[in-house]
């Protein structure tokens, strides 16, 4: 995994996402989810291409049920874009890179 993609947990979620100066895209995923694996490389590309403008972090739903429940995630992959700690955009299911970028373009 690239060092550009961060890892969030129940314990570190608030300090990372709430306190961030730039928008944070959180990827709710799990090891057993095929579509989640598909979007991993896409997220790495976005993190590299937009470094400094956005942070991207993965949250493993198996290990971090609190945050998963707090945002009512019921399907993975789910991507939620947070700004000033508040959810702004929610994307459900794997999507092509172009479409992903379009959905979050207002925050880049």
């Amino acid at each position: 995994m690239s060092e550009k993609i961060e890892t969030f947990t129940d314990a570190t979620f608030d300090e990372n996402v709430k306190a961030s100066d730039v928008p944070v895209l959180v990827d709710f995923w799990a090891e057993w989810c095929g579509p989640c694996k598909m979007i991993s490389p896409v997220l790495e590309e976005i993190a590299q291409e937009h470094e400094g403008k956005i942070r991207i972090g993965k949250l493993n739903i198996d290990d971090n049920l609190d945050v998963t429940r707090r945002f009512d995630v019921m399907s993975i992959p789910t991507l939620i874009l947070f700004k000033d700690g508040e959810p702004q955009v929610r994307l459900i299911g794997a999507k092509p890179k172009g479409q992903l970028l379009e959905e979050i373009s207002a925050y880049l």
Binding site: G34, P35, K37, M38, I39, P77, G93, A94, P96, K97
Partner: peptide, 18 residues
């Protein structure tokens, strides 16, 4: 193909199975 959750993605339908 491109990532999606509806089976026309890279890897095809088996990407949605266990």
């Amino acid at each position: 193909g491109e990532p999606s959750s509806t089976s026309d993605q890279p890897g095809g339908q088996l990407m949605l199975t266990t």
